[in-house]
């Protein structure tokens, strides 16, 4: 076991630097430390000006996603030990404009997320007196996988299409749309289809599949997008072959 391990951390201080630079920090190596623990050590002991996001340090909040040695990872769930002997290169998530050091601007993702209406859409809410909306275990199983998404945006960082075409609505937003589409209580399928059947919706995706590889929660956004394509195609043929049944 080594005594220390080296981190090469991307620094971007726009007031001082036109381009990001890498700064090397030697931190104590501990077998039970994650990359996030090492970053916290730097901030507490070596350089208090280092900026990065984190909150729960237990893989639930989805804030601490960064590029670690070029791979999008949750830094709170990545052991230093896995990355021996180092150095470990830490960069902000790919695909998002960098505000400072390891902090990206995620406004674009939040705007896209709201566009797919990530809530249960009802044409008419039933009165409270009638009780809750019931659901069977089979109906829950239909969408449960997609409800695991923690909005960590690792899938956006893994997706070359999002990097190339910033208008692409992206893996997580589509998987989350499917989470509500497949929910037996929801009636918003058509509204979401109007958003997602555009080129910037599902059709920009070419099934690279990396979004599902990096997903820490096994949501499989790539699968969700292909399933959406199948459904949208069926919908298209139905509306062409039976025009009288259109809205």
């Amino acid at each position: 076991m080594p005594e220390t391990i080296t981190l090469e951390v991307q620094r971007y201080r726009p007031e001082d630097e036109a381009e990001p630079v890498f700064e090397r920090f030697d931190v104590p190596f501990r077998a039970d430390w994650m990359v996030l623990d090492a970053l916290n050590y730097i901030k507490d002991n070596l350089d208090g000006t280092l900026s990065y996001r984190w909150a729960c340090r237990m893989g639930v909040c989805g804030s601490c996603g960064m590029m670690v040695n070029g791979q999008p990872l949750l830094t709170c769930a990545t052991y230093l030990e896995r990355l021996l002997p180092g150095p470990i290169r830490v960069e902000p998530l790919k695909g998002f404009p960098v505000i400072r050091d390891l902090v990206g601007d995620i406004t674009d993702f939040l705007e896209k997320l709201s566009r797919v209406k990530p809530w249960i859409v009802r044409e008419e809410e039933k009165p409270l007196a009638e009780g809750e909306y019931l659901q069977t275990p089979e109906q829950l199983a239909d969408y449960e996988q997609y409800s695991m998404c923690i909005n960590c945006m690792l899938c956006y960082a893994a997706c070359p299409i999002y990097e190339l075409e910033p208008d692409f609505i992206g893996p997580a937003a589509i998987a989350i749309a499917q989470r509500y589409n497949l929910d037996s209580r929801d009636e918003g399928v058509q509204e979401r289809l109007d958003v997602l059947s555009q080129h910037d919706g599902i059709w920009a995706c070419t099934f690279v599949g990396e979004c599902s590889v990096v997903c820490p929660k096994n949501v499989d956004p790539a699968g969700a997008i292909q399933r959406y394509k199948v459904a949208a195609t069926a919908d298209w043929f139905k509306s062409v072959l039976t025009p009288w049944a259109n809205r």
Partner: peptide, 29 residues
């Protein structure tokens, strides 16, 4: 500020350029 193009308290995002042969960057690509 050391960066002469920086305006105080005005955010300046950094965007990375995508190489034309981006699909050579990793085995998966």
């Amino acid at each position: 500020p050391l960066n002469p193009r920086y305006r105080l308290y005005h955010p300046k995002w950094h965007r990375t350029r995508i190489p034309i042969f981006w699909w050579l960057r990793s085995f998966a690509y």
